[in-house]
Nucleic acid binder design. Sequence first.
DNA 1: GGCATCACCATTTTT
DNA 2: TGGTGATGCC
Length: 892
Amino acid sequence: MSGFPDDMPFFDEPAPKPQSEAAGGGAMGGIAARALAARQGHGNAPDYLKGLNPEQRLAVETTEGPVLVLAGAGTGKTRVLTTRIAHILATGRAWPSQILAVTFTNKAAREMKNRIGLLVGEAIEGMPWLGTFHSIGVKLLRRHAELVGLRSDFTILDTDDVTRLIKQLIQAEGLDDKRWAPRTFAQMIDGWKNKGLGPDEIAEGDARAFANGKGRELYRSYQARLTTLNACDFGDLLLHPIRIFRKHHDVLAEYHRKFKYILVDEYQDTNTAQYMWLRLLAQRPSFEAPLRSTPQDERSDPTNSPARDRAPPDFSGATAQGQPPKAATRPVSENKVNICCVGDDDQSIYGWRGAEVDNILRFEKDFPGATVVRLERNYRSTAHILGAAAHLIAHNEGRLGKTLFTDRPDPEDPKVNVHAAWDSDEEARAVGETVEVYQRQKHNLNDMAILVRASFQMRSFEDRFIEIGLNYRVIGGPRFYERQEIRDALAYLRVVANPGDDLAFERIVNVPKRGLGEAAVRQVHDTARALRIPMLEAAGNLAESDELKPKPRAALREVAANFARWQSALETTPHTELAETILEESGYTAMWKNDRSAEAPGRLENLKELIRSMEEYESLRSFLEHVALVMDAEQNEEQDAISIMTLHSAKGLEFETVFLPGWEEGLFPHQRALDEGGRSALEEERRLAYVGLTRAKKNLHLWFVSNRRIHGLWQSTIPSRFLDELPEAHVEVAEGGNSYGGYGNSYGGGFSAGRQNPYGASRFDSVGSASGGSFSNTYATPGWARAKANRTEATDRNWGSRSGHQVERIGYGEVDSGYGAGRTSVKGRTIEGELVAKSVADTPSAFHVGDRVFHQKFGNGNVAAIDGNKLTIDFDRAGQKKVLDGFVTAVG
DNA sequence: GGCATCACCATTTTT
DNA sequence: TGGTGATGCC
């Protein structure tokens, strides 16, 4: 991404040439030649169109008017986007600078740039408006900053800065920052900004919910403070441009003229603010769609803040300024909106951070006459994987509806495997063994991945892989630019680049320790506020006065002198060299060299890496811009290693072999999603499962365990309802229990919909009961049965090596015999080819609500509810638990 | 200012 | 259970 000062001037591009000229003129270099090829008629499609399937080609060639491309997983989405851009360029429809192409992540933007580059050669240099929402937002804002009271050299605050700032504000209000956590408020503000709401627009209820009803004032003073600091947060990068567009018609009109084509990647992930932003840019005055509908998002959002009931903010630039929304005199062609949104409603997994799936569901209403192209031909996965994924996702309502298919079904392809394990350690062990099996078959570790729901799950895999010496890499997790030492170093650089960056100054004024305590820093702060000058300047003033004691005074004098010196060197010294000097002279490097903790060498190494990475940028300023917007750092993939990551960070990736552990109720779907988000959250969890399944090209292994340690306590768990939703035809319950036995009947089958779901029983519950509850309650394959038979012994082996679990081991052993003898029916049944794990037992439970029962692990309790063979029991000591009836015995 | 102790918490994460 | 962040004591 290019840094900001070196941007090309805004409106200096030549007017677009008519198509006929563009093709013939040499100005576009290689493109012209391709354009020629493009115009040679249907029989002779240009190279870049060859190899596209008919749907992809339709998506590429429908350049005019609104287009929605519903691109299922692995259907060539990026290819369509990049080819479409290449096509627009090659046919001379627009100059590179007239195409606005937005993505969510820097990675996606980078990949698009690369791939367009491959298609059209050098012309990519001129794609200045391809980037993330935020990077394009910055670019817009730098040009028009004064319209919202900022200078164009404003700084971009990261979440850490924001939190510290809010903390100051909360304290300044005389509020207790423990009662009102700054981070919580930062998240609230972020949420509001995602919805496009400024301080005056938030709902009364929301405003009152924080800081003794001072939420709104706090938000307002936060914004005021940002303006004073000449800074903005991530949300402002979108909101400020929206404000500018709404208020300054001329500005918006310029961009309307400028952008001939708009492309949006991952449209299902757009939040309301991004949607507003896009609509402003895409919308022409005569464009008459309902700006925002719809009853649907109210319905699907049980958190339903009052804000949702208010009239939607009017972000139509036209109507806001009182212009008639209709401009009947304009020729239709001028009102054409050449916007192309690409996305997949089934992969919308970011609702919890403000994404509105509804945006994509509503596209055709928003843009009447839209061409909708469905990409369903999948080039990634086997028919089994696609079949499993399709069957699962079909349980969601409110989909646009796609069914992926493959042209290349292969009878040799393995089915999707479902495995059970006793607990998470065994799960890790078993996954490790399976990985080794693949390794022996010459599979690369790079082609395998373990995708987990929550990051705490990673640990057991890491432990195990270290133990057996298996290379792994964790994707995601703590980011390079979020590390303490990197932040500190960046704070120094920020102050040098921008002396008014008080937050950065405060961060490092006493790092390393210079004897500047809280009192001294406060003094600097207050002076700065009183005189309306930057803290750095205030520090210089105080150093010359006698308001402070000699020691802090000397420290401040040195700090001020240092920064003055570094700033003057900024013009003359290469920025990498200057950075080194700063870290050296400030004593920062020395601080870590003197630190004897284990992390210190790593931190020094990171600092070196930071300097190295600066080399790619031409100035300190452009580097800082990059850092503010790009929080990730490249991972090196040279070493052969299996990847471990969350399902969320796996979106967009693919692997030959995928392991999906932890498919248990409460973990996946996650209990918290169920508790807080109701049905729509369950559907999002299901989409997450869908994303997980569709990452696999060939081999897919799902796992669930019977016991998982959650918050340090062992909990018995039951298989995820999502397992129930997989089609039997494509799934195989894995054998191999002997090698890692011990799971036996403890999982019991079935899910926990009843009590745990606040919205009531899921409709999947009724699958069992509606059909008379005549299902097996267990997996039923020969291997399974064998494993069951081996269970007790294996369990002893597994648990015996641990201390402190004797009781449980014995307990389960005893329960097991009773359970096995009493009520198991091993023969599996299916319904319409569905249901691998069964939810409901053959026989209704013999227990009754109110029965006094005993459980080996949890002790005595009373039955509170019964759902098939699943009992909800209020235990005297362990609280309420859901257990299978086979695990308890009647008391008295 | 540095260390020990204690309470508290515990999905998902980009920019 | 274990990691973090804040408090309080020296």
